[in-house]
Amino acid sequence: MAAGVRRRGKVGYLLMVPATLWLLVFFVVPFYSLVATSLFDPSGSDFRGYDMTYHWQNYADVLQAYWRPFLRSIWYAALATLICLVLGYVLAYAIAFKAGRWKNLLLVLVIAPFFTSFLVRTLSWQLILSDHGWVVRSLQFVHLLGPEDRLLATPAAIVAGLAYNFLPFMVLPLFASIDKIDPRLVEASSDLYANPFVGFFKVTWPLSLPGVVSGTLLTFIPAAGDYINAEFLGSTNQRVIGNVIQGQFVDANNAPVAASLSVLLMLIIVAMVLVYVRRAGTEELL
């Protein structure tokens, strides 16, 4: 019997090998490398190399120097996620319940922007929001914008860009969740004296929560790390943490600072996600 157990154990471990390898190669090693880099002596350079001095001070330094871009990243991502949630919910709801035979076509249309590159899409927004573009001019014409006001280079432009770019990440899980809701449950709620508004919040919304949670995570996490939107739609006063990491790594060649920023961003996001998932009561998703 002991032998049998041992053999089964062996097979179990064997089956775990691919996943373990995958995790090792694509997560553990890069992450280990990243953490190690973040603890290098920041006075190192390509010429002199980097010494491992367990320089934890890096973290305090970057937090002190770059807390603004951190906050901006989180703030912009949170706003964009909220916008995505509202727009995405309406869209997903309409596709799931009202689209009928157009359902598949509409889903394809939601994903269609992915057929062009992220960069090109963001650059198109730069053109759309451009100071001399028709959007700004129309808004100026109806006096929603003053003659000197602009859309580009404002936080609103970045948030709009993020919301646009990550909307499909919100819509798809939301759709998957809402589509599974039996329309008869909504009928049942109206049969049981819930007006459409109450019925939505007592039945549809709670049943779509798994989609809401995964959609907001799938939107918020990449949005918080994104710097393309800030790069193309913002100005020098709206740079986000992604810009800093990119600049530190590529332009300033300061790998330890860039690495500690990255680790910090990761920790902050993981912490926020944990709190959020707890609060949403959907631990089973993790």
Binding site: V29, A36, F40, Y50, G225, G242, A259, S262, I269
Partner: peptide, 17 residues
Amino acid sequence: AVGGLSVAALRLPFFEV
């Protein structure tokens, strides 16, 4: 994964470059 930074080529597992 985060931030689009590639540092893997900074040699591991030895703690210096």
